[in-house]
Nucleic acid binder design. Structure first.
Lengths: 213, 213
DNA sequence: GTCTATAATTTGATAGAC
DNA sequence: GTCTATCAAATTATAGAC
């Protein structure tokens, strides 16, 4: 049910609160979230909130750290997998679109809060003790390019292309629906279709023989 | 200097306020923005703010509408241009990355506020009286595909791919820098490089002969 | 139109009974 | 540990002098 098992020492009430806080903070952001609303969501008294977590700031930091790690670890796991490039790209896109579908608010939340307050979280991120192991993926790209199996491309740019095409349509959904005049339903169907086609779109670009004269 | 000439009836003081409000709202969002801060930024008294715009809500709606239209019109202009597909994609990507570079906060602002409050702005958007003219672009894709010049692809998906790869790296900058362990400077250089390569990445995928057996 | 002062409201946080 | 009642601070909004 909940994904907050990380907080191993937390009792039942604390978990209820954390769950509620995750929901409210990730939807409304730090500034828009109200302690009262979190209390209601957790079906608990507002005073109990402060009893357990002392302040809004402290509670928020816990949630932010948790969400950041979740995104981070998911990406890390995907990118470290040991498989052929073509399979990996297929795996990355499908897995990532799935992950985001199931965690609609996660990316916009972290993206927004990190943008609003870049330095506030330098310490949070350092504390999280995360070191992205991208060498595997980066080297794989370079090797395939050198072998002539794909075209030359900056691995970071490729990585960014993949992530962009998977992630952006989700936080941008309301904006794109508004701009393009698309209904929620049609948009949802497009996203399902998208899962199938992105990997091909990328691979077609990478193995295009035109650029290997 | 300012881009708010749209408010034709606005006097000098009103423009100063609107400029300040745009800056503060787009950086901090509705919930994070303080009327006092907007007043300071405009070098004007807080009471004058309310004298001119009555309430935070009313001021925010003006700014939101303005920013939404700006994104919308820019996209519309680009997509309606009458030129060959290859040139258009080159033009779209370069132009859009430029536009976003110069308006760093615009996209995340509209994206976030629209996501936080989808129905609040249904009326705003309807009032904006905007109808996206995508037929030109959509038909162009279909025609080129039928002629065998590019592979078959859903025009909306292609459109989404282009926009995603141009836009996402900007709102996601702090997050990606944090996750990938890249410095601000290196990221900026990557974005410049990006402007040159995105169009090729897309065209390579579209004209890949592998899929036209 | 612009300012100072202040009202009215919201909201994070705490005291203290049980 | 949990609740009610309440404080203290912040913030939107207005009144009224100039």
């Amino acid at each position: 049910m909940t994904d907050l098992q990380i907080f191993e020492t937390a009792g039942e009430t604390e978990l209820k609160i954390l769950d509620a806080a995750k929901k409210i903070f990730s939807i409304k952001g730090y500034d828009g979230a109200r302690m009262q609303e979190i209390a209601n969501e957790a079906k608990i008294n507002k005073a109990a909130l402060h009893y357990y977590f002392r302040s809004k700031d402290k509670l928020f930091e816990l949630i932010f750290k948790f969400c950041f790690k979740k995104i981070y670890n998911n990406l890390g796991e995907i990118i470290e997998k040991d498989m052929p490039l073509k399979d990996k790209i297929k795996f990355m896109t499908e897995n990532y679109i799935d992950f985001i579908s199931k965690n609609q608010y996660l990316i916009p939340f972290i993206m927004t809060e990190l943008a609003k307050n870049p330095d506030r979280f330098v310490k949070v991120i350092k504390e999280s003790d995360v070191k992205f192991k991208s060498e595997n993926f980066i080297n794989q790209i370079k090797k395939e390019a050198k072998a002539g199996n794909i075209k030359e491309i900056d691995p970071f740019q490729l990585f960014m292309n993949i992530i962009s095409m998977c992630v952006f349509p989700f936080p941008a959904k309301p904006m794109l629906c508004a701009i393009l005049g698309i209904s929620e339903l049609k948009y949802k169907k497009m996203m399902e279709e998208r899962k199938k086609i992105i990997a091909d779109f990328i691979m077609d670009s990478l193995i295009n023989p035109v650029h290997r004269e």
